[in-house]
Structures are given as structure tokens and as C-alpha cells.
Design a protein around this nucleic acid. Structure first.
Length: 263
DNA sequence: ATGGTAGGTATCCTA
């Protein structure tokens, strides 16, 4: 089973990219973030045409929005609200075989890395805390589950183009990395991509639109992740971060990240 | 140190 996560940055503008993801990666489950569309306007015809008869969409007008597209049936689809804010940032589905999939879009957190001064950064840290408590309380460590999505944090030094220059840039600050570590510990989540691609290698999944030549300057960050609970980790067979997708026509600023599981 | 681009919505917010 191949599972792909991709921050589409507006699903309605990415028909060509979606067709390419299906043609070149062929995921069984495709999880999207930043769909930026309310459910009534989600391009369902395209989803079915792409070969996904099943989906769980959870969107809102203009901002955020997550979706799970699947070749096989999805059970117990629902969504979560965090920090008392009704943003569309989390979709949950159970895959055939009883694997629970959590598709997350963590807040980017604004520009100022100070929770006192910046409510968006405060929200980001608070959501990480709530998620950590929730996964620990519900004993996910003993379950078969997948947590993936745009977590908007690059935890390792090799997950950013310059560790030193990004230490006070939101996405790589020590306080965020510590809280992401706490979330990872909440169920013993295994970073599936880094289990395949050595942590010593630089690896990015996002490049800003603001760089004139993203490929040459290569000022990227690894913001998109796929994690597995310990029970599922032995099933991991392959992982792929599709860097070339950043160079496609009408690209998202994020590229697809995929794992293959022997289930 | 600054500003650069993209997307959605309504002319400014977010990333």
C-alpha cells in the first residue's frame, strides 16, 4: 500500500499536478492539506476521475482544509477540532485492515517566534501540546496508526538548508522542535521517511515561492512528514520525497511525500 | 537588513 501526503496549496488549481501524482506515484491513499475550499465546492468529479472512489473531505472557505482520497473504502471518517478553534486541520479515517490514519495540517505559526507576541505561534505550540496529550491519553503506542501531513516543523539540522540561519525562523526554532519531539514520543511514532533516507542527508519537502530559482538556491525545509506507530513500523518498505514536483508547471510550494507499506 | 511570490478573498490576510 502506497500512501502519499501533499500540501496542494489550493486543490482547485492543481488538476495537472494531481494527474501527475497519480501517473507517476500511483498512491492507494492520497492525503491533501491546504485544499483551501469549502466541502460543497471540492472537485469531487476530478477525485473520481483520478481513480479514487472513496474520500473524506474536511474543508472551509479560503484557508486550511484537509482531504483523504482512497482507492479502497474508508471507515469511521471524522474530524477533530483543536484549541477550541474550528479550523479544518485534521481528518481521521480507518483504512481497510484497521489502520487509523491521521491527516494533519499544523498551523504555520506566523513570523515572530514568540508565543507572547504572536497568537499564531501560540496556537501552533498549543495544538502540538493538545495533540501530544490526546495521543498519549488514548494509548496510540499500542495501536496500528499513521500520522502524516504538513506539520510545518523541520526538526533535524539536515531538514533545513541552514540550521544556524534558521534557528530563530518559525519552523525550526528549538521550542517547536522540542514540542514536535514530544508529539513524536506521545505514541512512539517512527519517522518513516528518515527510517529510509539517512538523517545525515539533507532532505526538503518545501521551497518558498519567493526564491527566484528554488532548485539552484535550494533553500528548502522538510515540513511534511509520515509517521508510523511501532506496531506498523516493521511493515515499512520504501519512502520517497518527490523533489522534481517543485519544478512542475503550476507547482505547489510543497512536494509529495510517500511511503510504501507491506500491508 | 530587506523583500521577494503565490493563493483566496475582497483590496488584505495567510503562507
Amino acid at each position: 500500500m502506497r500512501i502519499t501526503t501533499w500540501n496542494a496549496n489550493s486543490v482547485r488549481l492543481r488538476e495537472a499536478a494531481l494527474r501527475r501524482i497519480v501517473a507517476e506515484i500511483d498512491p492507494d491513499v492520497l492525503c491533501l492539506q491546504e485544499t483551501k475550499v469549502e466541502d460543497g465546492k471540492f472537485p469531487l468529479d476530478l477525485v473520481h476521475d483520478l481513480g479514487f472512489p472513496h474520500c473524506h473531505i474536511h474543508g472551509q472557505k479560503g484557508y486550511h482544509g484537509v482531504a483523504v482520497l482512497a482507492k479502497l473504502p474508508l471507515d469511521a471518517c471524522h474530524s477533530h477540532k483543536w484549541c477550541g478553534i474550528d479550523d479544518s486541520r485534521h481528518a481521521v479515517c480507518t483504512l481497510a485492515g484497521g489502520i487509523e490514519l491521521h491527516n494533519l495540517y499544523i498551523p504555520a505559526g506566523g513570523d515572530i517566534p514568540d508565543p507572547e507576541l504572536n497568537p499564531k505561534f501560540r496556537h501552533k505550540l498549543a495544538m502540538l501540546d493538545e495533540l501530544s496529550d490526546w495521543f498519549a491519553t488514548n494509548h496510540y503506542e499500542s495501536r496500528r496508526a499513521i500520522l502524516l501531513g504538513d506539520l510545518n516543523i523541520a526538526p533535524l539540522e539536515t531538514d533545513v538548508w541552514s540550521h544556524k540561519q534558521l534557528l530563530s525562523v518559525v519552523s525550526h526554532t528549538p521550542v517547536e522542535v522540542e514540542k514536535l519531539g514530544r508529539l513524536q514520543a506521545s505514541a512512539g511514532w517512527v519517522d518513516a521517511v528518515r527510517a529510509v533516507i539517512p538523517p545525515e542527508e539533507k532532505l526538503f519537502s518545501w521551497w518558498s515561492y519567493r526564491n527566484r530559482d528554488w532548485n539552484a538556491s535550494d533553500r528548502g525545509r522538510r515540513l511534511d512528514h509520515i509517521w508510523l506507530t511501532p506496531a506498523l513500523a516493521p511493515k515499512l518498505r520504501h519512502a520517497d520525497v518527490r523533489r522534481e514536483a517543485r519544478g512542475w508547471e503550476m507547482p505547489s510550494d510543497h512536494v509529495p511525500v510517500t511511503v510504501e507499506l507491506a500491508v
